[in-house]
Design a protein around this nucleic acid. Structure first.
Lengths: 199, 199
DNA sequence: GTCTATACGCCGATAGAC
DNA sequence: GTCTATCGGCGTATAGAC
């Protein structure tokens, strides 16, 4: 039984190694510029065959990666919703999370925001129709109902609020800005919230 | 001499056919999912060899396409700057242009905004450091100096203003919105301008 | 200068030894 | 269940006939 646990443990570790290596390479070079040989080497494996023990195809590697990222984001957003009452606080929490991720795990945000995921995962829903982003739109809807946010269509509110946040993150990730991230975070939050807040 | 002109004319036409076909396919499927055989067929050619008469490599096709789009945009922006005095009017003109393009030539904007150009043109400057977009930042700088735009860093102003516009265009291009484009254009302009205008 | 035929390499995927 | 060896195919690019 100990053995079983060890094996399971090890298998999980190898899977994670592969996913981590793939994330880094996809974020850096893109899906199509990354071969399984690249992934194998970055994951410290001897052979590409090992990848096929854990994933049926290269495509599945990317699909799993995308699913994991969206799931993790979704959980974090739920957490933020439960620990904050007002829509403004919830949105603030999400913005904090995204900027924190830009610092701690830039490859995750590069994958989400810069790669054109549809190109290699054509069956995946567009980012803006994924579960976590639907939750953000829902927060905006609630904010409108409760009078914190001005009375616009939630989709438009999302476009305006998240347009500023998303673009700021993008510009941070591509090295466009010259000041520290914290500066832009504060400014972007203010501008984004002002764009949709009831005056 | 007539013959020379005809030949030149024809050559130009074939080049354009290739570029138009490539634009459409790249915008729809992405660069890596598009083969030269696809392009040849969409351009109405018999053989991929013809493409190699006009472009050294597939990569050059994409590079030429990107250069043409940026040039054309740059010319349009110059025109807008010359026919409008105030920064607010110039920005308004650019927003009108971009929404018009979304309608008339969506593939151009898909290429610019949705594809991750760096993936297949690694040597190209990021969009936000390209000539036409530098001109937009310059307009914002002038607007700040002349007091139309509040006193923020031009880069931040660009992130806020263009974040809203860019995201709205993206959401239009991906079919996220349910109302007509005109509605979102008016709203996006207002929100974007309000985000940076001096109150 | 346009089309035919083909070379060549790379990469995803697999079969099978150990 | 990990590694070796290799297949098959696609896609870019070219060489050469017409």
């Amino acid at each position: 039984m100990d053995q079983e646990i060890e094996e399971t443990q090890e298998k999980t570790d190898v899977q994670d190694q592969i996913l981590i290596a793939a994330l880094q390479l996809f974020a850096e070079k893109g899906y199509f510029n990354t071969s399984l040989i690249d992934i194998k080497e970055a994951a410290g494996l001897e052979t590409t065959g090992t990848i096929y023990q854990h994933f049926k195809t290269k495509h599945r590697v990317a699909a799993q990666l995308y699913a994991n990222i969206l799931d993790s984001l979704s959980v974090s957003i739920d957490d933020i919703r439960h620990t904050n009452e007002k829509s403004s606080e919830q949105l603030r929490g999400i913005v904090d999370l995204l900027f924190k991720l830009t610092d701690d795990a830039p490859d995750v945000l590069r994958f989400l925001l810069i790669l054109n995921v549809k190109e290699f995962l054509p069956e995946a829903r567009p980012l803006h129709q994924s579960v976590p982003f639907k939750k953000i739109i829902n927060i905006i809807e609630v904010g409108i109902k409760e009078g914190e946010i001005r009375n616009i269509s939630p989709q438009l509110g999302y476009a305006e609020f998240f347009g500023i946040i998303d673009n700021t993150l993008r510009l941070l990730l591509t090295g466009f800005f010259d000041k520290k991230a914290d500066f832009y975070q504060a400014q972007a939050w203010l501008a984004a919230w002002n764009a949709i807040a009831k005056k």
